[in-house]
Simulated scan of single mutants.
Amino acid sequence: MNTKFEAYLFDLNGTIIDDMHFHARAWHDILTNDLKSDISYEDTVLQMYGKNQELLERVFGKGHFSQQTMDEVSMEKERRYQAAFKPHLKLIDGLDVFLEKAHHAGIKMAIGSAAITFNIDFILDNLNLRKYFPVVVSADDVSTSKPDPETFTKGAELLGVQASKCLVFEDAPKGVEAAKNAGMQALALTTLHTPDEFHITDNIIRFVRNYEGLALL
């Protein structure tokens, strides 16, 4: 089967599973009830990109928390998210078929996510996705998170595929920006953001709500 791209790089949350509202609720609970911020739910959603530590520093300022406190807050947030989301854990509609088609066609695939390994393992192991994703780049593997391109350039390097031959699957504007910075095109999932919220669109080949009926690209 002839396809334009040799590799697919998938973000995780909101792209493989539709869980971003669960992350947002967990963060908003932590930020307002535990840490006593007056941030709104809508503003919490806008801050949800990059590493957990970076989110805390954007909301409270650098130096407000010790590294140990930020690590503890981060893990508590992930525990609350996982407990709430696990009963709803499933792939975004149509992705099971799409992944199997890509795998059968020999398209290389990787995860490129700002999530910590703890969360990536939770998804890949519970949904038995390891065979599709031999390469995983997490927040723990990069020095600078999205919109910096490192997550995706490292994924492409580990797969042995040129950036121009990689297609990024993303649900976040900052993720699409990271793809552009890596010299890659993107397919955007509208699980949390509407198309008008993507301020960079010239590298987006398509907006989709899910993977139902999606042909290989």
Rank of each mutant, 00 (worst) to 15 (best):
K174A: 15
K108Y: 05
A186C: 06
I30S: 13
E100A: 11
A186T: 01
D93H: 09
E100V: 09
Q47T: 14
F152M: 04
K101R: 13
T117F: 13
M70N: 08
Y211T: 00
Y211V: 00
L91R: 04
A110E: 03
F5P: 07
S37D: 07
T15F: 04
N210S: 03
E54K: 10
E170T: 04
F133K: 06
Q67K: 15
W27L: 08
V73T: 12
E57M: 11
K86W: 14
F198H: 02
M20D: 09
D148H: 11
K174V: 13
D125T: 11
W27C: 07
L99T: 05
S113Q: 02
L35D: 07
K4V: 11
T69W: 15
D196E: 12
V161A: 08
A156P: 07
A110I: 05
K154M: 12
A110Y: 04
L189Y: 01
I16E: 12
M20F: 11
L46E: 14
K36D: 12
R25W: 15
L55Q: 13
H23K: 04
D196Y: 07
P149Y: 06
F207L: 00
A215Y: 10
N210F: 02
Q53G: 14
N119G: 09
N33K: 13
T15H: 07
N210R: 04
I204N: 00
D125G: 10
L89Q: 05
A163T: 12
A172C: 09
N52Y: 07
A84V: 09
D96S: 13
L217T: 15
M109W: 03
K108H: 03
G94D: 05
A26H: 03
G50K: 04
N126V: 10
L159D: 06
G155C: 09
V137C: 06
T194E: 14
A84P: 08
R79L: 11
Q47V: 13
L129K: 00
L158N: 10
E6G: 14
L129M: 06
